[in-house]
Simulated scan of single mutants.
Amino acid sequence: MSAAENDLYQEVVMDHKRAPRNFGHLPAPNHQARGTNPQCGDDLSVELDVQAGQVRDIRFSGQGCAICIASASMMGEAVKGHDVEAAQQLQQHFRAVLTGEIEPEEAQLGKLVSLAGVRRYPSRIKCALLGWHALMHALAQAPDASPAAADATPPGNTP
């Protein structure tokens, strides 16, 4: 990662950590899930309003490190107003970039590409993916299911 790319990464992460977009609660979410990472204390809930196969609105709440919060903030911007299928594909591409399966340039991540540098820090990949895990669990949840039924704790993170 060049110095310019590293500066952009740090700037984007800090901007989204200081002023996260789509942070808070929806008045009446029809899909929701919670993700926790007991190893580092990250704990996020994702709430969705999904109508006719489209993510009409999204909010997240909780606490986490700068990477966790920035990634969830950028996730909200990236999926809000888009089809569920597009959100699922974006999650797959984002995950593939962070795990080194594909190169950032091939993934068509938009602004999310600024988080590609996280892949150089394996212990932080779970931080960047936590909100995305919760999003996928929320999307898979039946609209009237109990929120407790959708726990998005990443594999290998049980207490």
Rank of each mutant, 00 (worst) to 15 (best):
A87K: 03
L112M: 03
H93L: 02
L135D: 01
E85Y: 10
W132N: 01
G100P: 11
W132F: 08
L109E: 10
L130R: 07
Q92L: 12
Y121T: 07
A134P: 10
I125G: 08
K126H: 00
A107R: 04
Q141G: 08
P104H: 07
K126G: 06
A142N: 04
V113A: 05
P143T: 05
F94R: 09
A138K: 05
S146E: 08
E103H: 07
R95K: 15
H137P: 07
V113T: 11
A142Y: 00
Q92R: 12
R124D: 01
S146N: 14
E101C: 00
A87W: 00
D144P: 03
A145T: 07
A142C: 06
L112I: 06
L112P: 08
A142K: 02
P104K: 12
Q88M: 10
Q141T: 02
L90F: 05
E85K: 12
T99A: 10
T99Y: 09
M136L: 14
S123T: 14
A128S: 04
T99N: 15
A107T: 03
Q92D: 14
P143E: 01
A145I: 06
V118C: 10
L90R: 14
A86L: 10
A96G: 07
P143M: 07
F94Y: 15
Q108M: 05
R95M: 03
A96K: 09
S123W: 06
E105V: 06
H93T: 13
S114T: 13
L129K: 01
D144L: 05
C127S: 14
P143G: 02
A86R: 03
